[in-house]
Nucleic acid binder design. Structure first.
Length: 488
RNA sequence: GCGGGUGUAGUGUAGGGGUUAUCACAGGAGCUUCCCAAGCUCUAGACCCGGGUUCAAAUCCCGGCAUCCGCACCA
């Protein structure tokens, strides 16, 4: 059985995520985050956010509803609407462009009427069965709102990035006109996927963490650094390399200092949230597969069973010129010696895909068949669970009062007195709780409790007052007691 | 979107025109229990939706929706 299937089963059973609107039959491409999913996702986002904050990024939050003018300027309105054909005989659906080329035509056709006229006057055949194709349809990848705005159509944004670009002048003024400048936005994006599949991997509504790094186009320089991890790099031409991005082998593959810096930074973030870098590859997108806005892109792909899933894309793009032309607002920046139009390096994080990758990479099965989510402490929904070993001799009362105190220190804790002790450990293992604190008869004598570490199932006694004063996460005594079995 | 498969409790399943709809695990209450889903008692919980055929449909037929696999799509 695939790990993906086992994780989805666990996620539904334990409340990480569920298909949305299921009592009404469901709606494809939409998922709810359950009680534990919300906690896990927010912890992942927190690491992402703090990592960029630590790199001097500034944050913004812009609307999901966006006027068409923005997407006319960005090119999405043209490029996100595909003309398609469907064969009336075999029902195979193809891109119009593909079908035309196969029949020897290289015309550029932009509208449905144009296409229908062309198909009426020329013999274009279905690639699959050879039947003649006579009509085209348009497939829009953006959702258009039913009501109009003050300047025309309104769309749900297919990416959060444009909200940053259109605010570039305000942001750069806020940033006191310095470059380079990194601006980040966490938010929802919407794409009308033809066939959403695989739960969180292809959604119609998804969360993105996008960062737009504005740099001098001549140097595209962010900062000097040394690569932190050996990465699996697949350049668009030449042999794969496994090396630090600043190593002699990898440096020539990198188009700029900014590109290599944010590739390395992305690796550090993915590792911190619990993704195994051995199962990650950085693939430079072939030139003919690049998005309309990008001149160079590295996709960051995570291995899930036998597939590689794109979780992050780091693109070199140049949107400011389009908005300057379209809006008439000046987007260029005065440096000491010249005026420049900043280039943009954009690391774009697919939060939902990272979320399920974290679950998949953390999932393991013990020899007895029980399941464990070996999540890093920093992303686990709960940091600790508190149990009385048995519900008598006052142990339950004692444990409850300890729990109340611990919770004031750290709200990410849970109390459980139901079922056998083994069952309670197993419950916490499945949801990734790193520590279980158990009150037993010895507690009555010396105020110590056992702390059980999830991955090793080993137990060490601690004083209750020490746990309250030092907390659980970041408690050096706990780390020392279980090292090296503590993850990270 | 197309073709094919599948839809029964939280999860995984059995059954298949008239049943009290099977079983396991998970869940809740209690008993027991001093350390890893143990045991006992009690308990709650399901035939995806709509239409048709029929005296009778969870079961057969049609449509829809969801999901899985393949194709296409993933800017």
């Amino acid at each position: 059985m695939k790990v993906y299937d086992q994780v989805v089963e666990l996620a539904k059973r334990r409340g990480f995520f569920w298909p949305s609107f299921s009592i009404y039959g469901g709606e494809s491409g939409l998922y709810d985050y359950g009680p534990l999913g919300v906690l896990l996702r927010d912890n992942i986002v927190k690491i992402w956010k703090e990592s960029y904050l630590a790199d001097d990024a500034i944050f913004i939050d812009t609307p999901v509803i966006v006027p068409a003018t923005v997407f006319r300027a960005s090119g999405h309105l043209d490029k996100f609407a595909d003309l398609a054909t469907e064969c009336s005989k075999c029902h195979n659906r193809q891109k119009l462009e593909t079908v035309l080329e196969a029949s020897g035509f290289h015309n550029i056709i932009k509208t449905v009427p144009e296409a229908n006229e062309f198909l009426a006057n020329n013999v274009v055949k279905c690639i699959v069965c050879g039947n003649r194709i006579t009509s085209a349809t348009e497939f829009k990848l953006m959702f258009r709102m039913p009501s109009q705005g003050s300047t025309g159509d309104l769309y749900l944004r297919p990416e959060t990035a444009q909200g940053i670009f259109v605010n570039f002048k305000l942001l750069n003024n806020f940033y006191r006109n310095r470059l380079p400048m990194a601006v980040a936005q966490l938010g929802k994006g919407f794409r009308n996927e033809i066939s959403p599949r695989q739960s969180l991997i292809r959604l119609k509504e998804f969360s993105q963490g996008e960062v737009e790094v504005f740099v001098d186009p001549q140097k595209k320089f962010w900062k000097d650094f040394t690569g932190s991890h050996r990465l699996n790099l697949l350049p668009r031409s030449g042999a794969p390399v496994t090396a630090e991005v600043t190593s002699p082998e990898a440096t020539p593959l990198m188009s700029s200092n900014s590109m290599s810096y944010f590739i390395d930074k992305t690796a550090r973030i993915l590792r911190e949230v619990g993704i195994n870098l051995d199962s990650v590859r950085f693939r430079q997108v072939p030139l003919n597969d690049l998005a309309h806005y990008s001149s160079d892109t590295w996709d960051v792909e995570v291995r899930i069973d036998d597939d590689w899933v794109e979780v992050v894309g780091i693109a070199d793009r140049n949107d400011l010129a389009n908005h300057e032309k379209s809006s008439g607002e000046t987007m260029s920046v005065k440096m000491e010696d010249r005026t420049i139009m900043p280039s943009i390096i954009e690391p774009s994080y697919g939060i939902d895909r990272i979320f399920i990758s974290v679950m998949i990479h953390s999932f393991r099965t013990r020899e007895n068949g029980f399941k464990v989510l070996s999540l890093p402490e920093s992303v686990a929904p709960y940091h600790a669970a508190v149990f009385p070993l048995v519900n008598k001799d006052g142990l339950d009362k004692l444990a409850e009062s300890f729990f109340a105190s611990l919770r004031e220190k750290d709200p990410y804790v849970v109390y459980d007195q139901s079922g056998s002790i083994g069952r309670r450990y197993a419950r916490q293992d499945e949801i990734g709780t790193p520590y279980c604190i158990t009150f037993d008869s010895q507690t009555l004598q010396d105020s110590t409790v056992t702390v059980r570490e999830r991955d090793s199932a080993k137990q060490v006694r601690f004083r209750t007052d020490q746990l309250i004063s030092a907390g659980i996460i970041g408690n050096q005594a706990i780390r020392d007691a279980f090292r090296p079995s503590v993850p990270q």
